[in-house]
Computed example of a mutant assay.
Amino acid sequence: MQPEPQPLNSPEDVEAIRKVIRQGGNPLVDTDVPRWEDQVGVSRIVNRRVVEIEPLPTPAQVLADMPLSETAQRVVVESRDAIRNVLHGRDDRLLVIVGPCSVHDPRAALDYARRLSALNGELKDELLIVMRVYFEKPRTTVGWKGLINDPDIDGSHNIRKGLLLARRVLLGVLDEGVPAATEFLEPTSPQYIADAVSWGAIGARNTESQIHRQLASGLSMPIGFKNATDGSVKAAINGCYAAAQQHGFFGVDHLGRACVVETLGNPDCHVVLRGSSHGPNYDAGSIAAAMAEARAEMPEGSAAVCGLVVDCSHGNSGKDEVRQTEVVRELAARIAAGEPGIAGLMMESFIEGGNQPAGPLDTLVYGRSITDRCISWPDTEALLRDLARAVAARRS
Rank of each mutant, 00 (worst) to 15 (best):
C101K: 03
S102N: 05
H104S: 02
D105V: 08
P106S: 02
R107Y: 00
A109E: 02
L110G: 04
D111S: 02
Y112I: 00
R114I: 00
R115L: 09
R115F: 00
L116N: 06
S117Q: 08
S117W: 00
A118P: 01
A118F: 00
L119D: 03
E122H: 04
E122L: 03
D125W: 05
E126L: 00
E126C: 12
E126S: 15
L127N: 05
L127K: 03
I129K: 04
M131E: 03
R132D: 12
V133R: 04
V133I: 12
V133C: 13
F135V: 09
F135L: 14
F135I: 08
E136K: 03
K137Y: 07
K137A: 07
P138Y: 10
R139N: 07
T140W: 07
T140K: 07
T141L: 14
G143T: 08
W144Y: 13
L147P: 02
I148S: 06
I148M: 08
N149A: 13
N149M: 08
D150V: 07
D150H: 06
D150E: 06
P151S: 07
I153A: 12
I153G: 09
D154G: 13
S156T: 15
S156H: 14
S156R: 15
H157S: 13
H157F: 15
N158W: 11
K161T: 14
G162N: 06
G162R: 01
G162V: 05
L163K: 05
L164S: 14
L165M: 15
R167C: 05
L170R: 09
L170K: 11
L170G: 09
G172I: 14
V173R: 07
L174V: 08
D175V: 03
D175F: 00
D175H: 06
E176R: 12
G177K: 07
V178S: 10
P179Q: 04
P179V: 07
A180R: 04
T182V: 09
E183P: 09
F184V: 13
F184A: 08
E186F: 13
E186Y: 14
P187M: 00
T188W: 00
T188Q: 10
S189Q: 01
Y192D: 02
I193C: 05
I193D: 07
